[in-house]
Amino acid sequence: MNKKVIYVKNLVKKFDSFVANDNLSFEVSEGEIFGFLGANGAGKTTTIRILSGLSKPTSGEVKVAGFDAYTQAEQIKKNIGYMCQKFSLYEDLTVKENIVLYGGIYGMKKSLIKERLSDLLEKLHFQEYENRMISDLPLGLRQKLAFSVAVLHEPKIVFLDEPTGGVDPITRRQFWETIYETASRGITIFVTTHYMDEAEYCDRISIMNEGKIVALDTPEMLKKQYNVSSVEEVFIKIARP
């Protein structure tokens, strides 16, 4: 777990005079599950947009999957996946159509898409759903599929935004098992969430406040450091504005 897939050093992002990211430095390793936390408005979205090649830093060094955020944004985009709870799949397309569409967007060969499609349907026990509309699927199945689609092209890093919000406790745990399995294959998982019990599943977490990273460690070490029993309490102690 030593190879760095995200390297951020002294990252600053300003919008006019507003400093959204104030001198951030952190690294994330291959296959690591990294939780990126912060209150609303702390600056997380700005960082994620930079890490996914959608926005350029004002200053500082940022490398994602070995590519430079200033000059190689297109290569970065090809090497990442993204899933958010609110929107990931087209509801009025079928399961198969979504997979074929995303495979095409990622620039995958037709033969490879076909292969991944059948692998995926088998792995998720999804065969009977192949030609069903996404809107007809229960939420739990949609989330599993959305995650599989986000890693369809075997990216180096996948960004997950509140991945398990609102699902039942069993489905949620199945989802985390899938995440562990994916991480064990060397794909880095970058999770943002408001729900601190999701943070407890991460290998390491960072907590952002007013554009700065104010804590970064394993959940266990942070709980020890603040002498509390949950990440939620850590968060409330240090992120209360």
Binding site: G38, A39, N40, G165, H194, E232, F235, I236, A239, P241
Partner: peptide
Amino acid sequence: TTGVDAVSRS
């Protein structure tokens, strides 16, 4: 409290 950060939820 859905979609609200931990501090505001509390």
